[in-house]
């Protein structure tokens, strides 16, 4: 038999520890993506003069592979005196990469706010900050939660790329187990199953959040 249950059970604790790293990387990366993405989308509207530079930056990030960006942060930045450990470099790279995508999602959300909402904010003399914080963002975010959720799942599934810079997340751990024991079937299969399970759970959670937001906003 190819599948060895005893071996699978034996490596499970090691993989579970690695799974924690994967989840940490996912959540931290997504926090960066969600907040930085929002900041980019707001800056595009609030500072029209910066629009061109922001577009170039977003396009640059979206049009180059994430793996190259990870390598860039980890191997190239030290040449400029910026040394990041593997986990930090990986999380920042993933976060910034997905921030570029998230910023487009937010932008679509902002574009859907009727002009009258901006005009009423001006007529009431609201500051730009208050307009975004109290009027625009609360209306723009709920409709784009599903799209943001999709990027959360996509980001999660890309964390194995961090194994390329030896972050001890799931994939790297599975590879190490494989190279030490010459058994790849169990570790790689278990990692795959973990990703499957977590993706399904995330999708359910996102749907839950979506419904919650709908109930709160659509009256």
């Amino acid at each position: 038999m190819i599948w060895d249950w005893a071996f699978a059970l034996e490596i499970l604790p090691t993989l579970a520890r690695a799974a924690v790293v994967t989840i940490q990387a996912t959540l931290l990366g997504f926090v960066i993506a969600a907040l930085l993405g929002l900041a980019i989308a707001v800056a595009r509207i609030a500072v029209p003069r910066a629009g061109w530079a922001i577009s170039v930056l977003v396009e640059l990030i979206r049009s180059t592979p994430l793996l190259i960006q990870i390598f860039f942060l980890y191997f190239v930045l030290p040449n400029f005196g910026i040394v990041l450990d593997a986990f930090a470099a990986g999380v920042i790279a993933i976060g910034v990469h997905y921030a570029a995508y998230c910023s487009e999602v937010y932008r679509a959300g902002f574009d859907n706010i009727p002009r009258g909402q901006w005009e009423a904010s001006i007529a009431l003399n609201l500051s730009a900050w208050t307009t975004f914080k109290d009027i625009i963002i609360p209306q723009a975010i709920p409709p784009v939660v599903p799209a943001l959720g999709n990027y959360l799942v996509a980001l999660f599934k890309e964390t194995p790329l961090l194994s390329a810079i030896a972050v001890l997340e799931l994939m790297q751990t599975a590879k190490i187990i494989g190279s030490e024991t010459f058994r790849y079937t169990e570790p790689i299969t278990l990692v795959g199953l973990f990703f499957l399970a977590m993706s399904l759970v995330s999708a359910m959670l996102i749907r839950g959040v979506e419904e919650l937001l709908n109930r709160r906003t659509i009256r």
């Binding site: 909402q117 009423a120 009027i135």
Partner: peptide, 10 residues
């Protein structure tokens, strides 16, 4: 005051 009210719906 606007033709289309422009109240904040949320």
């Amino acid at each position: 005051v606007f033709q289309s009210f422009n109240l904040f719906p949320h």
